[in-house]
Amino acid sequence: MNQSAGHSGSAEAQSGIVVRGVHRSFGDFVALEDIDLEVKPGGLTALLGPSGGGKSTLLRIIAGLDYPDRGAVEIGGRDATFLPPQRRSVGFVFQHYAAFKHLTTARNVAFGLEIRKRPRAEVHDRVAELLELVHLEQFADRLPSQLSGGQRQRMALARALAVQPEVLLLDEPFGALDAKVRKELRDWLRRLHDEVHVTTLFVTHDQEEALEVADEIVVISQGRIEQVGSPAQLYDHPANEFVMSFLGPVTRLGGVLVRPHDIEVLTDERAGAVQVEVTKLLRVGYEVRAETRAQDGSTPWVQLTRAQVAELDLAEGATVWLRPLVATPFPAGSPRAPEPVPA
């Protein structure tokens, strides 16, 4: 499929994105503060961060929909800083689809090819191929208003891929969809990228989405890059408290930030354990959250399974001891010395 879809396979050199010293402010608000970033060719990279953190601004600057105050953008080794969007070879997918409402699904996908004045037969074949790729072949003659949100976004993706862009940029692509469809499209995007190895950069504020889909995650907050790495690196070895708390649930135990599922519950006192009283047991689906109160007034919580709760014979009001299962990468005022982070 990757060959027939016409995208650079392993044979061709793939285009990466290089961002150098990009700065963008809107009045007093600094959206991006001297950002340096290299997006590796052929990968699926997530720009992850809270709303207003600057990730969408960065994506729009790479697409040419906005321009930096200073700094440079390179796409596929060429300087693109001042190129208009139509000359960047960039596919852009918007959160709200930006479907051409007056055109059918097939004509939407064909748009970029028609602009390039490709022969009619070639356009027809390529559109058919792409519609198959995004599983919309039976919807070719529908108008966008007759498609569901998920279908519209798949159409938008096919439309962006039709012109064989060097890089594909997605701005919160699943943000407007309901939870179930979002999850489906996530898996689908992952599989699609395995077929069509185009360098892809997508913006999301959903850490689960980034962890599940991306090869590499760039965490951005307040206009700065906090950390770049693989999902496992970021989750296990976050560079700072912000990254750790943004990537998953955290709780504070004895002054140290830990993941609530990385806490051991003991029924007797042992070295390094903190004595707490269980204040509440909360069932959430398959997990049980045990909220506790320590003697220093802090309220750590633990994520447990129902089996664990039964085994420990845990009840509200019980006194137990909590101990972190894994070493915390940074001390944050903890009495325990941090262990060296393995490379």
Partner: peptide, 12 residues
């Protein structure tokens, strides 16, 4: 956004 999408697809 539709115009921006068209622009990124190469439309003048």
């Amino acid at each position: 956004e539709q115009e921006q999408a068209a622009q990124s697809l190469g439309a003048s």
